[in-house]
Amino acid sequence: MDKSGLLHGVWVFGDYRNYFQNRVTLQLIAKGRELAETLRTRVTVLLLGEAVHQYAMEYIAHGADIVMVAEHPDLRCYQVESYTNVVARWAEAFKPDILLGGATSFGREFFPRLAKRLKTGLSADCVRLEVDPDTGLLLQTTPAFGGNLLAEVVSSHRRPQMATIHPYVFKELPHKASAVGRVVYPEIEVKANTQVRVLRSRRQQARGGNLEDAQIVIVGGRGLGSREQFKLLFELAELLAGEVGATRPVVRAGWADEERLLGQTGKTVKPKLLISIGTSGALQYTTGINGAETIIAVNRDAHAPIFKMADLGLVGESSAVLPLLLETLRKRI
């Protein structure tokens, strides 16, 4: 008999840093509810930190049934080893079926350690989660080869079934002030970690843009014609709160830094929206953008390969489209 009401369940790690931009926890709560319903269980969000009560309320408002809180000064900063200690103990005590986390930098560093501690399976950066109707197992679809291949992974025997999920794969539930949930404070034992000390932590945009985390990516190719045309992309990116990427010929021509390179020898991005202008669609480039949710391409050649992987293909001269687009957006924003 589960007197505590805390046993099993679908657990979601509460990644509350950058709360307003980082919505992944809320997205996972939404998906968690769906999974929990199928498995006839509850959604529990884990919250570790110091003075984090406000997030508990938010999580409940967005659909959590239970929020399990660990408050301690030594948990104030995200820390892999100390968080692993707390969550592993809880997992051993309450035996969740599923444990989900956002594929943030922290999540991708923390979850493998936790999975190893619990000797269970973990899939990374999933783009799909379903419960198999026959087996009841969590089917975890993860990208491989930069997203050119998808692997459907299961953890048949070990528990919890763990996965980190790519942001924006799921949609959060709207905030419901009237939602009801429990906030619990299970016992914890926190040891300050002396081996890893954060000396300084400051907010910083990555050099060359935070391409891999960006939700909107604008890519320019050689078809733009000139460095000056390429520079216009930065303005476009600013207007749309996105980041600028480049293809290899552009980097070669010196119009953009290597850090902006997308593709086989560069970065792989999975944004919500990718606009590719003046790119022909060479395979070495497109392997880096396959995972984008929506792709809009602009090219003067109707037969350019890029159009095969675009949701919307605009056939026209970049040198005409881009300035006009900027002009129109400037007026609106």
Binding site: V154, A302, M309
Partner: peptide
């Protein structure tokens, strides 16, 4: 602990709509 049940190529869910016209 994990097993790859199957491998898939990303479904070609791209709508692939092509538009010609003035800028």
């Amino acid at each position: 602990a994990t097993r790859v049940q199957r491998l898939l190529t990303p479904a070609s869910t791209r709508k692939g709509e092509l538009v010609n016209g003035s800028p």
